[in-house]
Each structure stands twice: as structure tokens, then as C-alpha cells.
Design a binder for these strands. Structure first.
Length: 213
DNA sequence: ATGACGATTTACT
DNA sequence: GTAAATCGTCATA
């Protein structure tokens, strides 16, 4: 699959309703689009995702229904963005995809850069000592990398992506039934016991932009 | 008020 | 391979 073409139909509310395991897989091959205040459009084809199953999932922020200022967007309508800050320096982005008050989501873990690649490269050099350009496969190959690359932070948490002018998902017409997905356990899940091993991560096979194989 | 930790990344040995 | 960076969040008191 290539990811050259752009500006396709935006995902509507209905597109987000299928629950985290289905949505995590459906997102692969779709386009994550971010529009900056300057009007510049940045985007990438989603190549890796994970599902977070909510109340029962020991690895989820909403395990046992935990509902706080941070996790509140997880209880919103399907198509709400949930962006959180972690390790004192990184952001990660999720797509809320359950019924109202069912706090489940899909984490976007890697993109293949499509639009605004130069700007994406610049964003990724922020706060770094060496300013030597990064390899293209290093720009969005991780959940925090892609947030830095597309200038996504928690100010975007809670945004309705079916309406937003700053961030949304588009269908990718290049996506055919032939795409090959690889399934594996989620990354970085520790102390979640039996939930650490469940195969809730998916990535595009033979794609160099995934966080790991 | 306090302490432990984190859905990660980077640099270094 | 290992460890540091760095601070918001949450549970406990």
C-alpha cells in the first residue's frame, strides 16, 4: 500500500463505534490529519495501533472505571481524542471508540509520514542537542514520537474529531482488503499481569515505520 | 502534603 | 544492552 494521496473523506461518528479491537485494526491504513494554526496540513498513514479495553483492562487508564480530570475524555462520544502526558516529557494519543460512558480506546503507535514531512522533521528536532536530520523511519515510529511530530499535546485531549478543525482521521482509499496485519502483545505493559500478554497490538506487515517488529 | 510511578525516548557503555 | 531524563497524575495519609 502506498500513502501518497491525500484529502479523503473524514471519519464520521459511525466510523468510530465498533469498539477498540475492531477500531484498532480499522485505523491501520487510515490517515491521521493535523492542521496547524498556520494552516499547514500534516499527516501520516497509521501503521501501528493498540486496543485498550477499559474497565476490565488492567493496563488501561480507565481500569475499574477510574474517572478523573485526565481520563474524562475516555468517557466521551466515539471519535473523541484522548491525549495524555507521561514520563514527564511525552504525549500519546488515543481514539475513543466505545458507547457513551464506556471508556475504551485505540492508541495510535506509529505513522508513515505523508504530508508536511519537512515540518514533521523539524518538530522532531525540538529540544535535541544535535540538529542532524532524522531518518524518515525515525520520525513517527512510536506513540510519543508521532505526537511530537504532529504537534499533538494534551490541549487536544477531549476534542471531537468528527467536528474538529485541528485533528481528525480520514479514510484512505488506497486501503484494500489485501493489507496484511501482524498481531502481538502490547508494548510497555508491565505489572498488568495477564493483560500484559493479550495480543491487542496490530501493525502493518513489512512496513518500516512501525515502532518495532 | 507526599511519594511512587508511568501505554517512552534517547544517549551512552 | 542499561540508565537517565522529568513532571503530571493518582493513591494514600
Amino acid at each position: 500500500m502506498n500513502a501518497k494521496s491525500t484529502k479523503h473523506a473524514r471519519w464520521s461518528r459511525e466510523d468510530y463505534r465498533d469498539g477498540p479491537e475492531t477500531i484498532a485494526q480499522k485505523l491501520i491504513g487510515a490517515l491521521l490529519v493535523r492542521t496547524l494554526e498556520s494552516g499547514e496540513r500534516l499527516s501520516g498513514m497509521i501503521v501501528e495501533t493498540e486496543a485498550y479495553l477499559g474497565v476490565e483492562d488492567k493496563a488501561a487508564h480507565t481500569y475499574r472505571g477510574r474517572r478523573t480530570a485526565r481520563t474524562e475524555p475516555m468517557f466521551g462520544a466515539p471519535g473523541t481524542a484522548y491525549v495524555y502526558f507521561t514520563y514527564g516529557m511525552h504525549h500519546c494519543m488515543n481514539v475513543v471508540c466505545g458507547a457513551k460512558d464506556e471508556p475504551v480506546a485505540a492508541l495510535i503507535r506509529a505513522l508513515e509520514p505523508v504530508e508536511g514531512v519537512d515540518q514533521i522533521g523539524n518538530n522532531r528536532l525540538q529540544g535535541r542537542e544535535r540538529n542532524t536530520p532524522l531518518a524518515e523511519t525515525d520520525l513517527c515510529s512510536g506513540p510519543a514520537k508521532l505526537c511530537q511530530a504532529l504537534a499533538i499535546d494534551r490541549r487536544l485531549s477531549g476534542i471531537d474529531m468528527t467536528l474538529s478543525g485541528s485533528i481528525w482521521i480520514e479514510h484512505c482509499p488506497n486501503k484494500t482488503g489485501a493489507i496484511e496485519l501482524v498481531q502481538s502483545p502490547r508494548i510497555g505493559i508491565n505489572s498488568a499481569q495477564e493483560w500484559a500478554l493479550k495480543p491487542l497490538r496490530w501493525h502493518l506487515a513489512k512496513n518500516r515505520h512501525v515502532s518495532r517488529n
